[in-house]
Write a protein that binds this DNA or RNA. Structure first.
Length: 422
RNA sequence: GGAGAGAUGGCCGAGUGGUCGAAGGCGCACGCUUGGAAAGCGUGUGUGCGGGCAACCGUACCGAGGGUUCGAAUCCCUCUCUCUCCGCCA
């Protein structure tokens, strides 16, 4: 959520920054609502001051044994007016809040401007494309030849966009999770956390998935307002919702493995084959809470930590900065890591690392107290995939494939793959 | 699922209708003291909103939402969460 005061003080600049995400933005209703709200507050608070004063007098009169019935009647009437104005103020504030919740974050100035992904800026590439002197297979074929990926049975169990991993694939998935968690916690200094996989509406509002994007989520029927978490970003960022942290505790870095559940509304027909776009996938997520001054430096670090996973696994990738039109709702700046997929002869997203500045912190109420006292300030929050596990698995199958349809396991994973049965 | 207890400021913890934004303690900040530190002493120390150039003033907030009352942290109702005991369960 944007800072209402800032928006109102910089109406044109804010509108301009929001419009560079695409589409027209009209902030006039916001301004009008705020004006009405302020007028109502002024009126109701004057009445309340009057009532408080008279109430105090009544107390004194009763103590002194005087008759207070006349003043009492006056105050009762003031009370009725106050009730009506309170109601109006509440309504105005609810409308204002609802409007504010639908505004996306302001893109950082370092983001390239543009309407869609074609304007994203490639920053650098790492490694090189593997050379194959045979016709490459995609991971679906490899999975079938090895008997380790089963989409048909998954469809029978549940439906489309699910997979059953068996044998080496299941083991590789587990190895990747363990490898990533170990790397980030032991070498990069993140604290490992295993959060709930089901989250409440409040948490989703805190990180920005709600109220605008409910159709992308799976909602439970039983306790209504419970949702399957679409990413660990939601439970982990909300870990400190409503808290005031000590500045000396910042930055706080967490790494979490969770399955992620996405309805993928509106993606019909896209990436229908294989593991690329599933309703359920595993992800290891990095989340950082930090001081505003350091958040862009932290974004570089966090992104580097995600890159490190691909480098240890020897997977060719590139790093791009998302343009303003491709930026997610809550993000001020985002780097995507795209891994090379030989079967598609292109790079595909495998991680997304973002700085949300104070957008999520304001919604979720995450603050810190500056060292040496002073008013609490909103922290900046960041997160990034480190990495999407399913996509990493498919990238390994494809990039490490052999001519006969089998594949090799990257050296970094060997300690995690020991098996008597093979 | 059944029975009971509870939720107060950064933290702990008093407060059962008016003078309570709320005692006391811890923590923190500043000052005194000291060669330096600790201890000690003194002072200060919540958040949001509205008004004002500002000092400041007003208002709201004692888990959340309603109600009673001239007036609610305090009384009533609903909800959420926590704890204890019983049952059940991995």
């Amino acid at each position: 959520m944007l800072d209402l005061k800032y928006v109102l003080a910089n109406l044109d600049a804010v509108r301009c920054r929001l419009e560079c995400r695409g589409g027209d933005v009209d902030l006039e209703p916001l301004r009008r609502l705020d004006e009405q709200r302020k007028a109502t507050i002024l009126e109701v608070e004057q009445l309340k001051a009057r009532r408080n004063e008279v109430s105090r007098q009544i107390g004194a009169m009763i103590k002194a044994g005087e008759d207070a019935s006349a003043v009492r009647e006056e105050t009762r009437r003031i009370g009725e007016k106050i009730k009506a104005l309170d109601e109006r103020q509440k309504q105005l504030e609810a409308q204002l809040g609802a409007l504010l919740m639908t505004l996306p974050n302001l893109p950082h100035e370092s983001c390239p401007e543009g309407a869609d992904e074609s304007c994203n800026r490639e920053e650098r590439r790492w490694g090189h494309r593997p050379d194959f002197d045979f016709e490459v297979r995609d991971h679906v074929e490899i999975g079938e030849i090895c008997g380790i990926l089963d989409f048909e049975r998954a469809a029978r169990i549940t439906g489309a966009r699910f997979a059953v991993l068996t044998g080496q694939a299941a083991r590789l998935e587990r190895a990747l999770i363990a490898f990533m968690l170990d790397l980030h916690s032991d070498e990069h200094g993140y604290r490992e956390v295993l959060p709930p996989f089901i989250v409440g509406r409040k948490a989703l509002e805190g990180t920005g998935q709600l109220p605008k994007f409910e159709e992308d989520l799976f909602r439970l029927q039983q306790p209504d307002q419970w949702f399957l978490a679409p990413t660990a970003e939601v439970p982990v960022t909300n870990l400190h919702a409503g808290e005031i942290l000590d500045e000396s505790d910042l930055p706080r870095r967490y790494v979490a493995y969770t399955p992620c559940f996405r309805a993928e509304a509106g993606s019909h027909g896209r990436d229908v084959r294989g593991l690329i776009r599933q309703h359920q996938f595993d992800k290891v997520e990095l989340v950082t809470f930090c001081r505003p001054e350091e958040s862009y430096e932290i974004l570089e670090q966090l992104t580097a930590h995600a890159c490190q996973v691909l480098e240890r696994l020897g997977l060719h990738y590139r790093l791009v900065t998302l343009c303003t039109g491709d930026l997610g709702f809550s993000a001020a700046k985002t780097y995507d890591l795209e891994v090379w997929l030989p079967s598609q002869n292109t790079f595909r997203e495998i991680s997304s690392c973002s700085n949300f500045e104070d957008f999520q912190a304001r919604r979720a109420g995450i603050r810190y107290r500056p060292e040496g006292g002073g008013k609490p300030r909103f922290v900046h929050t960041l997160n990034g995939s480190g990495l999407a596990v399913g996509r990493t698995l498919l990238a390994i199958l494809e990039n490490y494939q052999n001519e006969n349809g089998t594949f090799r396991v990257p050296e970094a994973l060997e300690p995690y793959m020991h098996s008597r049965l093979g």
